[in-house]
Amino acid sequence: MTRFGYTLMTEQSGPRELVSYAVAAEQAGFDFEVSSDHYSPWLTEQGHSPYAWSVLGAVAQATTRVDLATYVTCPSIRYHPAVVAQKAATMQLLSEGRFILGLGAGENLNEHVVGEGWPMVDARHDMLEEAVMIIRELHTGDLVTWQGEYFRVDSGRIWDLPDEGVPIGIAVSGAKSIARFAPLSDHMITTEPDGDLVSSWRDAANAGDGARVIGQVPICWAPNREDGVALAHEQFRWFAGGWKVNADLPTPAGFSAATNFVRPDDVAESIACGPDLDELAESVRPFMDAGFTDIALVQVGDRYQEQFLTEVAEPLLERLRSL
């Protein structure tokens, strides 16, 4: 059965609000929660970007049932993989085994801030592969010294390590990345409802029954469709660029310029907007049909977030689970 999750969208809400939304989402019946891990919002209008790992630590203490995950963390530029290994182990302990470490090759928007530049995509994938290997080594609990092409670890050990380890999901986008990262991952993360991609990953990973295929779908519930479309355009027009564009733009100003000619109707073509719960649920169906086991919803914008969680989420989940 498909599991449905809630996205803690750090780009559009402050840290205290995110924790309260996490609690409300658990109470509404969501199965899991994922958090973005950003240094900057996509657009200035979103206006937020608290530190995801502090938020997740608080959420782990404020919730009891939902699984938690990063969606996704780049472990290679802004963070050193040894630090990611440590904080992922800590999150697994705090959440009592509810955490999945979601990893990806990152976006310029978040990684350029540390002044290390923005490598070409092949180099980013090389770095991600090496980072995952380091994290896996450190999660054995052994003393690790590593001298690689991109990273060094000097006598590193994770002292507080969960017995069950930390499952890793890796974001993939095509055959090349599947061949490379499926053998290194426990779970698949991807943005497109492509059944062939899912099948290819399962074959390459030799994935067992417990392996998850995790996706994300933005929706914009609002009291009327006009408000929903306007809010989605204001907050989420960056989505229209696609990941090849989104990975390389460096600043919210760049995203604003790149989406200057994106119209509200353009956004509404890719994001279900308004009060029709059947329409919102149907927008998720392609991911279900493609074989995704876990689908996280993004309720776009902070404006209606509380109302969405207290009034809309429960009946929407009922519709989704009946599909």
Rank of each mutant, 00 (worst) to 15 (best):
F99G: 06
A205F: 08
V312P: 04
T140C: 08
L323M: 14
D163L: 13
L309M: 08
G291N: 07
S270C: 09
I158R: 08
N260W: 04
W53I: 12
S40F: 13
L323E: 07
P81K: 10
E111L: 06
R16P: 00
S322E: 14
A179F: 01
I134G: 05
L109V: 10
Q305P: 00
T310R: 05
N260S: 15
F292E: 03
G156E: 11
S35R: 03
L317M: 09
R98V: 03
P119Y: 12
E318F: 02
L297H: 05
W243V: 11
T90W: 01
F99M: 12
A313L: 11
I77H: 05
E311S: 14
R263Y: 06
D248V: 15
G254E: 13
T2D: 00
W243Q: 11
H38Y: 10
D203G: 05
C220W: 01
C74N: 13
S270R: 15
G165Y: 09
S54C: 10
L128S: 07
V298G: 01
V229E: 01
C220A: 11
A272G: 02
A222I: 02
T251A: 07
Q12K: 00
L8G: 02
Y71I: 10
A179R: 15
H112D: 13
D289M: 05
L184E: 03
V229Y: 01
A85E: 06
H187G: 08
K176A: 15
F292Q: 05
G195M: 01
L249D: 04
E311P: 00
